[in-house]
């Protein structure tokens, strides 16, 4: 059953249209990614879901509640980590967790959270003295302090170094494994591919696609491409006769082929039978990156 349902969400800031009919639903227990270029409306979407912003139009239901009208109830089971949000610099890690724990009806134990998120050694350290990675870990711990059923994580790993980012991914998987639904806003493809069960791709205030990472990748066209220089001439017709091959182009002495995910095996088998060697062989896999670029049609010059 869907725990979050968003339909026809619209929001404008002055002349700027931020959301232009956004719809999607999030199933209980999944990691749902919201992916898109900067300014696409990702943050506005999750702010509307979290009841921090009132949409101009459309309908949002989180576990059956309207996030604005049912704000007080929603706060008890929805944890958030927001962009550009922090804590007083002189507040220590332990104090922050205890303070936020005191706000909830059924909070998690701050001591356990400290251990879980690797903050024990920093428990007495003031927020202002923490590293970026430690502040992010505290932000996740605070999102989890109310024992939420849903957590919204907005660009959690932006600004983290690669090691800290991978550590954060493990933590997010831990959250999902505990049965919590995760809404993850990101613009890192690798992150989306690795973590998300399903993704909504948002561009200029619209949902372009909702699918699994693999499903989105498939939409970008042929899953595999290969390029090589045959040691002996090969007939294009012969290659195209293989069911795995969809397209062949000749570039001087090189051949460029695209086709299904078994393209490489089928072609190399054929070449082996003919005792032809594929020199300079390069294989390219279509990635979520390709899908993202194809679907958002973002202009790199801009």
């Amino acid at each position: 059953m869907a725990i979050i349902e968003v339909s026809d969400l619209t929001k404008r800031y002055g002349d700027q249209v931020a959301l232009n009919g956004v719809s999607f639903s999030v199933e209980e227990g999944e990691i749902f990614g919201i992916l898109g270029p900067n300014g696409a409306g990702k943050t506005t979407t999750v702010e509307c879901v979290s009841g921090l912003r009132t949409p101009d139009g459309g309908r949002v239901r989180v576990s059956g509640l309207d996030p604005r009208a049912g704000r007080d109830e929603l706060r008890q089971f929805l944890g958030v980590q927001l962009q550009e949000s922090g804590l007083p610099p002189k507040l220590t890690v332990r104090e922050a967790l205890r303070l936020y724990a005191s706000f909830y009806r059924d909070p998690a134990d701050p001591g356990i959270l400290l251990t879980q998120w690797g903050l024990e050694a920093k428990a007495g350290t003031r927020y202002g003295k923490l590293s970026g990675g430690q502040q992010q870990r505290l932000a996740i711990a605070l999102a989890m302090v109310g024992n939420p059923r849903i957590v919204v994580l907005d660009e959690l790993t932006t600004g983290l170094d690669p090691a800290a980012r991978r550590a954060a991914w493990d933590l997010i998987e831990q959250i999902r494994d505990a049965g919590v639904t995760v809404v993850l806003v990101t613009h890192f493809m690798e992150e989306a591919e690795r973590l998300c069960d399903r993704l909504a791709l948002i561009d200029t205030g619209r949902v372009v696609a909702v699918d699994t990472p693999a499903g989105l990748t498939a939409r970008a066209g042929a899953p595999q491409r290969m390029r090589f220089r045959p040691s002996e001439p090969v007939e294009e017709e012969e290659l195209l006769a293989l069911p795995e091959v969809t397209d062949v182009t000749r570039q001087g002495r090189h051949l460029e082929l695209s086709g299904t995910e078994n393209l490489v095996q089928a072609v190399t088998a054929l070449l082996a039978r003919r005792q032809i060697i594929a020199a300079d062989l390069r294989v390219e896999q279509t990635t979520l990156d390709d899908a993202y670029l194809a679907l958002t049609k973002s202009d790199p010059v801009k």
């Binding site: 927001l82 550009e84 706000f103 109310g146």
Partner: peptide
């Protein structure tokens, strides 16, 4: 902003 996302 962080507080406004909590019950307080």
């Amino acid at each position: 902003r962080r507080l406004s996302a909590s019950p307080v």
